[in-house]
Structure formats: structure tokens, C-alpha cells
Simulated scan of single mutants.
Amino acid sequence: MPEEVPVALVHNGSTFAVMMATPTDLEDFAWGFALSEGVASIEDLGEVEVIEHEAGIEARMWLPEARIAALNARRRAMVGPVGCGLCGIDSLEEAGRKVPTVAGGIALSETDVALALDELRDWQPLHDETHAVHGAGFYVPGSGIVMAREDVGRHNALDKLIGAMARDGIDPATGAIVLTSRLSLEMVQKAAMAGAGLVCAVSAPTAHAVRVAEAAGMTLVSRGRGGIAVFSHAHRIKESDHVL
């Protein structure tokens, strides 16, 4: 069975959020969460101190004082269960936050998309052991999946991937984010905040997620019954015959 522990994301000495997560790759998690929540830029982020306690784990980092207002605006006041990406947000405005427009990005063929979704399974050792975790990977044409992260929570897995890519200097516009989960609203928001133009998933998106992706210029793709289903900005998918 996978582990699931409270992980407190502590910024400037104050707890910003407590998420139930798999206790691996927590430095990546701290970076990715800060970036995908829009409370910091890559230039703001530095060393993460991981402190284990009897009750859980703290991932501590310091951000510039200029980021305090953004922190307070996105602060989460309660523990976030693994299946809930917006738990603790205390205003409707913050739940429906605007995301930046994603320009450029690569194009993939339908074959690339199918290959990316299939290859991600090879990067999920924890899933092979437990059959109870999600995965998020980054696919580069010609190279395949070059990086992946796992977690009991789909949002956490994506945050870990975003953080790992940022720490390694990988531009999300040079490939596609690949997910084992459905494309819910916050998954699209997080990918857009990271600058990803193309997101592929095993399950279809929600209607609201598609609207956000359309406005942000993102391409959403999933594996459909008849092949590949493209839900927004189909110009990034070459030879796609299954456009909804």
C-alpha cells in the first residue's frame, strides 16, 4: 500500500497548506506547488528544508517579502484530501482564478500522443507495486518520457513534476505533460501556470476545464474509444481525425 502522510508546505515560517501526499520527491513538490499556485516565480525559489515530525512532514522554504500578498491570497486553511484540488480555498474568486495565456509549444502526432500515454506506465514503479497512485510525466518527441513523478493525489503528482522540471531547467513548452488522471479544472490551471501548451491524459476533461484551456490557448487531449480525442486548440495535434 502507498504511504499517505500530512505534508505541510511552510513559506517564510508560516504554513501555507497541508496536503495529504506520498512522502517522496518533496523538494520537487514544494517548488511545483509554489509555481502552480502562482505564489512565486522560479527566480524566487531556493533550497527546501524537509523536516520530519511524528505527526507528518514539513517542507520549508523562504520567499521574498514581495510575495507575501500572493501567499495570503492563495492561502489554504484546511487539510487537502488527496482527491480534492481546491479544498481550503476560501473564496469563489480564488477557486476560479485566471491563468496566463500559453503561447507557442510543440505539435504532436496522434502516434506521439498514444506513445506518450503508453510509455508513462513504464515510469510508475510505485503504481506497479501498489496499483493505488497517479503519475505525471513529461514527453519530448524523439526522446519519449524524460521525467515522471508519482503520488496518491493526482494534483500532487503534477506539482511534483512541475517542480522537478523547474529545478532541472526544463521548459514545459518543449514537450507535453502526460497524466494518468482525468483533466479536472485545477489540473488545467496548474499546467497553464507552468507554461505547458499541451496536456495529454488517459481520461476526458470536464467541460469547465475545456473552457479554461480554450481561453488559455492550451491543447487538451485524451485517449478516446475510437482513438485520440482533442478537446481544445487542435492545431498542436497533427493528423488528428477525432476532434470533439
Results as ranks from 00 to 15, higher is better:
1 M>P: 14
5 V>L: 00
6 P>I: 04
8 A>W: 06
9 L>N: 03
10 V>N: 01
11 H>G: 09
14 S>K: 05
19 M>K: 10
19 M>N: 09
20 M>C: 03
21 A>Q: 12
22 T>G: 00
23 P>G: 10
24 T>A: 14
25 D>K: 04
25 D>L: 10
26 L>Y: 00
27 E>P: 01
32 G>F: 00
33 F>Y: 09
35 L>K: 13
38 G>Y: 08
38 G>H: 02
39 V>D: 09
40 A>F: 10
41 S>W: 10
42 I>R: 15
46 G>V: 03
48 V>Y: 06
53 H>E: 10
55 A>L: 14
60 R>K: 05
60 R>C: 14
62 W>E: 14
65 E>D: 15
67 R>A: 07
70 A>N: 12
71 L>R: 07
72 N>T: 08
73 A>F: 08
73 A>C: 01
77 A>W: 13
81 P>Y: 04
82 V>Y: 12
86 L>V: 15
86 L>H: 04
87 C>M: 08
89 I>G: 12
90 D>F: 03
91 S>Q: 02
93 E>C: 04
93 E>V: 06
94 E>A: 15
98 K>T: 15
99 V>K: 13
100 P>H: 01
102 V>Q: 10
103 A>E: 15
105 G>Q: 09
108 L>F: 02
109 S>P: 01
109 S>G: 13
117 L>A: 07
122 D>N: 12
123 W>A: 08
124 Q>H: 14
124 Q>L: 15
129 E>H: 13
129 E>A: 15
132 A>H: 11
138 F>Y: 04
140 V>M: 05
140 V>I: 11
140 V>C: 03
143 S>Q: 12
143 S>N: 10
149 R>F: 03
153 G>I: 02
154 R>Y: 12
159 D>A: 11
160 K>I: 07
160 K>W: 08
160 K>E: 15
160 K>P: 11
164 A>T: 10
166 A>I: 01
168 D>V: 00
171 D>Q: 08
171 D>R: 04
173 A>D: 02
175 G>A: 07
175 G>Y: 11
176 A>E: 07
178 V>P: 14
179 L>H: 09
181 S>I: 02
182 R>M: 11
182 R>L: 07
186 E>R: 10
188 V>E: 15
195 G>E: 12
196 A>M: 00
199 V>T: 01
199 V>S: 10
199 V>A: 09
201 A>G: 14
201 A>V: 08
201 A>M: 09
204 A>I: 03
204 A>G: 14
206 T>C: 06
206 T>H: 05
207 A>W: 06
208 H>Q: 14
209 A>D: 03
210 V>R: 14
212 V>N: 03
218 M>D: 02
220 L>N: 06
224 G>N: 13
228 I>Q: 04
230 V>R: 09
230 V>L: 05
231 F>I: 12
232 S>N: 15
234 A>K: 15
236 R>Y: 06
239 E>C: 11
243 V>K: 06
244 L>M: 15
